[in-house]
Design a binder for these strands. Structure first.
Lengths: 191, 191
DNA sequence: GTCTATACTAGGATAGAC
DNA sequence: GTCTATCCTAGTATAGAC
């Protein structure tokens, strides 16, 4: 099955991107992990950049699907927290591909990838709406520009604290999630 | 002067590490930026890893020097905030080399580099002391393990929010610093 | 300790048979 | 659409003259 094969490829790419990033990932590794020849990969995807972009698009689609699944009767702050929790869970599971650095060749490919840009816009618009709602109702600090709040939430997807705490081995995933959610929304200071 | 030349090399490496990370940085670029031949670089440093490690050691030494410069009559929470502010400033200036991913060849070199490990231990011990002090005096949330606080502070050195906000061009560096400090210590929620 | 020139390898991409 | 075999560039590292 053609689609199942491509899905396996994208899964391998996704995992490797999460583990080592775009530059350090090699196409040979991807082929080895999928269990096919490198040349076969290139029948499915024209370049390493497109391979990585497919993984980024998929995770973006997963994010959109998660937003769709949220109970809209919940208050906006609660929905935002659930999104952050989902993001952290994905990263702890080793399934969150890390963003390329600003000067990476992948950036160019991504910014011209309609599926990716559309997904990002979709997610940003919806989260942006919830943020301003949560600021109006007093849940989120109204002194912060919504853009700053949005970026701060996005940043949980590449928070190194998660990896550090996981490799320390002192806490369960659930404990890590609760602590990182706490530092994110409540801050480090005593309340 | 031998030492001035090596300093220029390390500065170039540092800037390139900050801009694109270890894997994407090439030795050719370093040579070009310093304005010497690639072979000359290898007379000073035996490998790309050692080149990068030298930059990591230097930034660690700068951190130690900054801790030394702090006014010890200030309360621990105030000192912690100043350290985070310093870290953010260095990153905004494009002088904070980004950590290698966990599977990078640079990791191995760093973990066996005594100057780096000693600096990291020194910084961690002192910050750790201030954190527990600040928790005892009620400044920092005592429910958080000190290790979690420490990692959360360290994470400001590679916070993508800084780059996003800077490239958005809507705020001055000082505004960015204040907002990121606020989200770090006060959190996103209303107080 | 700097240079030019080159060796060597990893890795992205392709040819061509089946 | 998969394979084996190969191409070719980029990039790390070194030789050897000055």
């Amino acid at each position: 099955m053609h689609i199942a094969r491509e899905d396996a490829i994208v899964s391998a790419v996704n995992r490797l991107l999460a583990e080592k990033g775009f530059e350090a990932m090699t196409v040979d590794e991807v082929a080895a992990e999928v269990g096919i020849a490198k040349a076969s990969l290139y029948k499915h995807f024209p370049s390493k950049e497109d391979l990585a972009a497919a993984a980024m698009v998929r995770v973006m689609n997963r994010a959109v699907a998660f937003l769709d699944s949220l109970d809209t009767t919940q208050p906006p702050l609660e929905r935002l927290k659930r999104v952050v929790r989902w993001t952290i869970e994905v990263k702890l599971d080793g399934e969150m591909p890390s963003l390329p650095s600003e000067s990476s060749s992948l950036r160019q490919t991504l910014t011209t990838n309609k599926a990716y840009v559309d997904g990002l816009m979709n997610v940003s618009d919806r989260l942006g709406g919830w943020i301003t709602e949560a600021q109006e109702t007093g849940g989120i600090n109204a002194a912060l520009p919504p853009l700053v709040v949005l970026y701060t939430l996005y940043a949980r997807a590449c928070d190194p604290v998660l990896g550090f705490l996981k490799s320390a081995g002192l806490y369960t995933n659930e404990q890590i999630i609760e602590m990182v959610l706490s530092t994110c929304f409540e801050g480090l200071n005593t309340r």
